[in-house]
């Protein structure tokens, strides 16, 4: 219940956080909602030398729609995604899925950026991100780059983020007419992680045929993955 000691620094901007990250090196961890990091620290299964608290960076906490893109800041909480009118109208499946993460108290503090960076093999957001073909904005010392969800999830707890980078934004497509998406999850009775979770997005053409199908599965492998055979079978 008592973590090892560490140095705590609060970063008030992305710039500051990045500087601290490069300065402190491998021994530093970013703290956003804290619901993955702090439990591990309490059990002393993780003992970072430095904790850089980014939870107060306002610029990362907003949701904005820009045409057919929905931009969600990395520090937007699950609760905000769950309840945001913007998300509900632009990409309702995201709200529905956010409402299934952990429990209400976890959702009150957990963030989308934290969840994606953590990349738990049974987490919910990775499936949504992958299924919807979202883009992850990673910012590092040399600026920002955009990583397609298809390239982002590398392995168990492993992402395409490089050392010194942090997630600053996740961009989802606004689901247009003819496109529907759903997330179904079979929860572990204790942890509420997905034993298996399936996110699917289908776009129909005018004739009611499946134009495109994307299916992503979480919980059933070392990392989220696309069920390409299912996609092929359903397309057309």
């Amino acid at each position: 219940m008592i973590p090892n000691n560490f140095e705590y620094i609060r970063a008030n901007s992305v710039q500051e956080a990045l500087q601290l990250l490069s300065q402190k090196g491998d021994g530093a961890r970013l703290l956003a909602g804290g619901h993955s990091l702090i439990p591990a620290m309490k059990l002393r299964l993780n003992a970072p030398e430095t904790v850089i608290d980014i939870s107060g960076i306002q610029e990362l906490a907003s949701i904005r729609r820009d045409g057919d893109r929905l931009h969600i800041g990395a520090l937007v909480t699950h609760r905000t995604v769950e309840t945001s009118d913007e998300v509900k109208s632009s990409c309702p499946v995201l709200s529905e899925a956010a409402a299934l993460i952990g429990d209400p108290l976890v959702r009150n503090r957990g963030t989308i950026g934290g969840s994606l960076a953590h990349c738990d093999p049974a987490a919910d957001y990775p499936a949504l991100t992958l299924c919807l073909g979202a883009e992850i904005e990673a910012t590092g010392p040399s600026g920002s780059r955009t990583i397609a969800a298809d390239d982002f999830f590398v392995g168990m707890f492993e992402t395409a983020l490089q050392s010194g980078e942090m997630i600053t934004r996740v961009t989802f497509p606004v689901l247009g007419k003819g496109t529907g998406a759903a997330y179904e999850k079979f929860s572990h009775p204790a942890s509420r992680f997905a034993v298996v979770g399936v996110a699917a997005m289908v776009t129909l053409d005018g004739g009611g045929n499946c134009n495109s199908v994307r299916v992503a599965i979480t919980g059933a492998g070392p990392s989220v993955f696309r069920a390409t055979k299912v996609e092929q079978a359903l397309t057309g």
Binding site: L37, L45, A47, H118, C119, F157
Partner: peptide, 12 residues
């Protein structure tokens, strides 16, 4: 040897 195992939240 010293082995540092880092798997996501766990670092030992």
């Amino acid at each position: 040897a010293v082995i540092e195992a880092k798997i996501g939240p766990i670092s030992s």
